[in-house]
Amino acid sequence: MVQFKDWCDYNDTPVGNHYIRVMKGRGADAATAVQVTAKALPAHYAAEERIARALARMGKTKAAKLITDLLPQTAQIRSGDLGEIYATEWINAHSEYHAPIKRLRWGDHRDMAMRGDDVIGMILDPKTQRLSFLKTEAKSRAALKMKTLKEARAGLDKDGGLPSPHALSYIAARLMELGKDMPLVDAIDDALYSHGIAPDSVRHLLFTFSGNAPHVLLTKALQSYTGPIGQWGVGLHVDGHTAFVGAVYAKVIADANQP
């Protein structure tokens, strides 16, 4: 798990009824940031059990190739993937929601961007067995601009602002394949086919990972929203964004090939 507190300072700001958190990577802890991110990253591309099994069966060299073959090769896809990875890690560590799958494990191709809702966090009420949802759009840019946040808003507003039926069915199918969390699978099916999803059971998360300060842009983006769904904006600001992304993936490859 990426421990943001180990390498970031953060500031929370209310925007009306909404909320913004900006996390700023500390330059003095850049090496820590690369290290903890690189440690967490392989599990977003392959199950820990698969990596461990490959290591036991084939040895370090071939297991290392398994890991590196799953990683995207282009800088653009690496940047986008890392934005989604950070969003997933933040949801699981710093919100009451849980992202039940690591979506990048099921990518069509390592150098193709994933389609659909970026990440969906969920809370299953133990009494009612009904779900609350955190619909998330993650954007990663060396220089974040309002145009990108408008693209994210368009994604969040699709399907009436609710998680798309396709995205929820996708999550349920993956959980079934894994044989995990059957109560959550049932709750997803109930939301889709029995009682539906009410807007008041949904919150939006606009997550950005950028090389420039996101606070002003996120504030404008949340202030301009006039719909009924609660909004969170979380911005991770790391100086030297492009070099940082490259360093993270280089560290993953180096660690995989370490004797």
Results as ranks from 00 to 15, higher is better:
L55S: 02
D111C: 07
I123S: 01
D81K: 12
F207E: 02
D117F: 14
K145I: 15
A154M: 07
K127S: 10
V245M: 06
A47K: 02
A152T: 14
Q129S: 09
A172R: 05
G121W: 09
D186C: 08
W7L: 03
M114P: 07
L149A: 13
T88K: 15
V2E: 11
A173W: 03
P42L: 13
D6C: 13
A254W: 12
V36K: 10
I91K: 04
L131F: 08
N257Q: 15
I123V: 04
T226P: 00
W7C: 11
D69E: 07
A43L: 10
K65E: 12
K65W: 14
R57T: 10
V2P: 08
A33R: 09
K180L: 02
Y225P: 02
A40Y: 06
A221Q: 02
A250Y: 01
D9I: 03
R141K: 13
H215C: 08
L218R: 05
A187V: 04
L175R: 00
Y225A: 09
G235I: 02
P259V: 15
A143M: 09
K39I: 14
S95N: 04
K62R: 09
A143P: 03
R26S: 06
H44C: 08
A138P: 11
I85W: 14
H98Q: 02
A31L: 14
G179A: 05
D186W: 14
S224I: 08
M114G: 07
G80Q: 04
A38D: 10
R57S: 15
G155K: 01
E89S: 14
Q35D: 09
L131N: 03
R141D: 05
G83D: 06
W7Q: 06
W106R: 14
D125M: 01
E137K: 09
L55N: 09
F207K: 04
A187Y: 03
E177Y: 07
V245D: 04
V36N: 08
K220Q: 15
I101Y: 03
M1T: 11
K139Y: 08
P165R: 09
E49C: 03
P228S: 15
L41F: 11
K102T: 01
K158A: 02
W7Y: 13
G59K: 00
H166W: 11
M58K: 11
G233H: 05
D9Y: 03
A142T: 15
S201E: 07
G107A: 08
A54P: 00
A172M: 04
R115A: 14
A56F: 08
Q73N: 03
F244G: 02
V119A: 14
G83Q: 05
T136R: 08
K62H: 13
H94K: 15
M112T: 09
I120C: 03
A254R: 12
Q129I: 07
G160D: 01
P42H: 14
R110L: 13
Q35Y: 12
M176W: 00
D255E: 13
G240Y: 01
I67S: 06
T32C: 06
G80F: 03
R141C: 07
H195P: 09
R174S: 03
G196I: 01
R153I: 01
